[in-house]
Design a binder for these strands. Structure first.
Lengths: 332, 332
DNA sequence: ATGAAAGCGCTAACAA
DNA sequence: TTGTTAGCGCTTTCAT
């Protein structure tokens, strides 16, 4: 392994000098500088970033914890993509740790990233309770940002998407289009996003005078196949509805497939809507009415908050905006 | 910052002892062990992984370079997902560096990851020439695996998907279904995958007695919108074809949308096929005929090769398997 | 079974 | 402007 010392010897200078020309902070005589560069070339030296970061006590990594086993759809990918994008934009690297399937594993993943001395870590957890996470955030030596979750004691350390509010918007829209008999396809159990949406759904249904009805709710697990199966269940139940609201777009695509197979036209017979504003929604037939969830904005805020370059935008609560397309039809 | 020394003092032992109980390799008296654990709790000590890895000269990171600005679709996400999955499976973390949009930046990204002393790095580059990459791989102190690319001098360091062969399979299938007037939607320019597929397409067309015809090829850029626009171009050209082969599934979805809008039925009037076996292909209407590209297998091999746990499967060349669905119809 | 000390490769404060 | 030296926090001989 070629180290800085090898370069120093080769150039006939001290390590410090090599370090200086590499970092360009201090002034070094031109002639020496060239000698050093030559030595670097000759030796094929590559700085050991690990050593560098250990000395400076600073890294250029930002950690991300997601439960990757849980869900491998476009949504998850978008998370990934945006996280990487904003890290790079601020000249940092994204380092990923899997939260797997228990809260202990989620804690382990966070610990790893903190131990790696990341500049900060973003966590999109599922099993860890808000309360536990709150404590972890409080006692962490580096910034930890909770994504898609509100922390009571560390509000500034969370970027919260208000899915409850978002779903309220969607329900209002459906109602405005004449739909009050709405079925719901739920996402994975114990998912915070789903709980928030389902609560909004139930409240609105009550407001429309429809008591909670188990035949109007089918359990999915976020992916297309589960939406497809859940919709078939709904159809077989002989439930009466004019619209189906799916917990996300992927399931909505599955729903539409199931409806078509059952001989129903969308939106002529049944309207369908989802959440997330997946790109596909614009190309599917019919194009999908959905709620745009500001994932990109979420990561922008998270990364900027970690690196302390946020432009004072106050409390980070987002709810999303309606995207109206063909899949919902006005009735009566 | 609490260090191992603090713990040692608190427990009334030496640093070495603390290290020993933490690593569990050497034997430590039970009583002391407990004292150390207690001290760890009291002090709230967290090991500095950077220091640890710097001493042991070993890290638990695997690097990944992709040009993320280039393409943010399901394909890209699947890459990400599978990379992370296999890293975690072998108890390593995925660390990501963006290759951005020039070969210099790609080199920079690789250098960063090498400098971080990753166990190995996987590169999915676009601008770096095979020859340059080959040299980089040869001179690297750690394993560098080229994804989706064949390296002449370091064949064992590449996991190659033979898109040429894959496209040949697809063309044979289409021909077998009676199609010989086939239009092609190409992926991004200078993409190796696209070049390989397009070459196969042209060769087969020549074989079927169709000379290269610019009106039969439209330029896309991998995403759905580009497929949509490319197909419209094809339609406006008044080109005559019975099938459209898109360079990937996403573009195929765009193509189908364009055809429907132009009043053509798929597959009754025009057949359509793609590549990648995107999940959506099964839910789209019509379901999409495609070629399953073994991305998962690619990353499995890459990670196992880096960690030297491969089960001797010889040269890593993959080509993919046909997935036959509704979007291609037999004619005549 | 435990401690002392050297060393991993680098940066930065201090001297010269 | 350049060199010397002392760490950064950890592991790992080598003694004890």
């Amino acid at each position: 392994m070629i180290t800085m010392l090898d370069v120093a010897i080769c150039a006939g200078v001290s390590k410090a000098t090599v370090s200086r020309v590499l970092n360009g902070k201090d002034v070094v005589r031109k002639e020496i500088k060239e000698r050093v560069y030559k030595a670097i070339k000759e030796t094929g030296y590559r700085p050991n970033l690990l050593a560098q970061q250990m000395t400076t006590q600073k890294t250029s990594m930002i950690g991300l914890v997601i439960t990757n086993e849980v869900y491998n759809g476009p949504y998850f990918s978008t998370l990934f993509y945006n996280a990487a994008k904003y890290c790079e934009q601020h000249n940092h690297r994204l380092i990923f740790a899997d939260g797997k399937r228990t809260f202990e594993e989620e804690i382990y993943a966070i610990d790893f990233l903190v131990g790696m001395k990341c500049a900060g870590v973003m966590v999109y957890t599922k099993y860890l309770s808000a309360c536990k996470l709150d404590k972890i955030v409080s006692s962490s030596p580096i910034p930890i940002i909770a994504l898609n979750q509100k922390l009571e004691n560390n509000a500034e350390s969370s970027v919260f998407i208000n899915h409850y509010l978002g779903c309220l918007k969607m329900m209002d829209f459906l109602y405005g289009m004449g739909h009050s008999e709405i079925a719901y396809i739920s996402g994975k159990k114990n998912s915070r996003s789903n709980t928030a949406r389902q609560t909004a759904y139930l409240e609105k249904m009550a407001e429309y005078g429809r008591a909670a009805d188990n035949n109007m709710i089918a359990q999915g697990s976020w992916n297309m196949q589960s939406g497809y199966e859940a919709a078939k269940e709904l159809i077989n139940n002989n439930s009466v509805f004019t619209a189906i609201l799916a917990g996300n777009d992927d399931m909505a695509f599955g729903v539409i497939k199931a409806l078509k197979e059952a001989g129903k036209r969308v939106p002529e017979d049944i309207s369908v809507a989802g959440f997330d504003n997946a790109k596909m929604g614009n190309f599917f037939s019919p194009t999908l009415t959905t709620l745009d969830v500001p994932l990109e904005e979420m990561f922008r805020r998270a990364v900027e908050s970690i690196l302390d370059v946020h432009q004072d935008e106050g409390f980070s609560e987002l709810s999303g905006t309606l995207v109206i397309r063909e899949s919902v039809r006005k009735i009566n």
